[in-house]
C-alpha cells in the first residue's frame, strides 16, 4: 500500500487542520507516509499533493531537500554514524570502518537481508558523547567496536524491538489536540485584529 491508508488519511487531516496554510503540513505528512511504507513512494507523493492541493513536483521538490526522506526502500534499521568534527576527533572513522566490516557492506548501502542500511551522517547533537551513531534516529553514545557488534546482534535478535521501531517512525506517540481546546489556525489573510488579551498599544511600540 503506497497511498496513505484510511487511518493515516484521518491523521493527515488532523495534522493539516493545525496549520494556517495547508502546505505547511507537507513535511509531517511525508514522515507519516514514510512511517507507513518505510520510504517515500511516488504514489504517496501524488497522494500528498492531492491532500494539500499542490503539484507532485512541489512535493518532490520539498521532499528531496531533506536528508531523512528515502526514495527507495531501505533497511529495517538505518544506522547513521556521525562523521562530523567532535566524533571524528574521537575515532568515528574507525567506527565506520568497523561497521562496514561487521555488516559486510559499504557505507551508503543496505544488507542483503534488508535489515540494515549504513550511512555516514552529520552532527547528531550529541557531540560530548562521541563517537555517536543513531539507529532509526535513536542515539547510541560513545560507541566502541564491541558495543557496535552488540547493538547489531541485539537488533538482529529483536532485543530492542520495544525501544527502536522500524525505519520511518519518528516519535512513537504524536501530539493530539483535543477539539474543545483547539484555538484554530485561520488563514492569516482572514485575520486582521490582534489577539484579545493584547491591549492595542502593546507590541506596537517599535
Amino acid at each position: 500500500m503506497s497511498r496513505l491508508n484510511d487511518s493515516n488519511v484521518l491523521l493527515a487531516h488532523e495534522i493539516i487542520e493545525r496549520y494556517p496554510r495547508k502546505k505547511s503540513a507537507l513535511i509531517p505528512l511525508l514522515h507519516l507516509s514514510q512511517e507507513q511504507n518505510g520510504w517515500v513512494t511516488p504514489e504517496a507523493m501524488r497522494h500528498l499533493a492531492e491532500l494539500l492541493d499542490i503539484t507532485p513536483a512541489e512535493v518532490i521538490g520539498t521532499a528531496t531537500f531533506y536528508e531523512m526522506f528515502k526514495f527507495e526502500p531501505v533497511g529495517k534499521y538505518v544506522i547513521n554514524v556521525c562523521q562530523t568534527m567532535s566524533c571524528a576527533l574521537l575515532g568515528s572513522d574507525g567506527l565506520m570502518h568497523h561497521a562496514e566490516q561487521k555488516l559486510g557492506i559499504k557505507a551508503g548501502s543496505t544488507t542483503e537481508d534488508g535489515m540494515f542500511t549504513l550511512e555516514p551522517a552529520e552532527c547528531q547533537a550529541a557531540c560530548t558523547e562521541a563517537p555517536t551513531l543513531q539507529v532509526n534516529y535513536r542515539h547510541r553514545y560513545r560507541v566502541t567496536n564491541d558495543s557496535f557488534d552488540q547493538l547489531v546482534d541485539d537488533l538482529r535478535a529483536g532485543n530492542l524491538d520495544g525501544e527502536i521501531p522500524p525505519h520511518g517512525t519518528l516519535g512513537r506517540n504524536r501530539q493530539h489536540i483535543p477539539a474543545e481546546k483547539f484555538v484554530g489556525a485561520p488563514d492569516p489573510d482572514d485575520v486582521s485584529d490582534g489577539p484579545v488579551w493584547i491591549p492595542v498599544s502593546v507590541g506596537d511600540d517599535s
Binding site: 511516488p42 507523493m45 501524488r46 499542490i54 503539484t55 507532485p56 513536483a57 512541489e58 512535493v59 518532490i60 521538490g61 528531496t64 531537500f65 531533506y66
Partner: peptide
Amino acid sequence: DKLIHFTQRGNQTQVMTFPDE
C-alpha cells in the same frame, strides 16, 4: 503551473519534473 521544481539540495540541486509528470 508548478510542474518543474528544484529537487535535491546543495551541489546536487537540479531542476526536475515529477517522474512521469
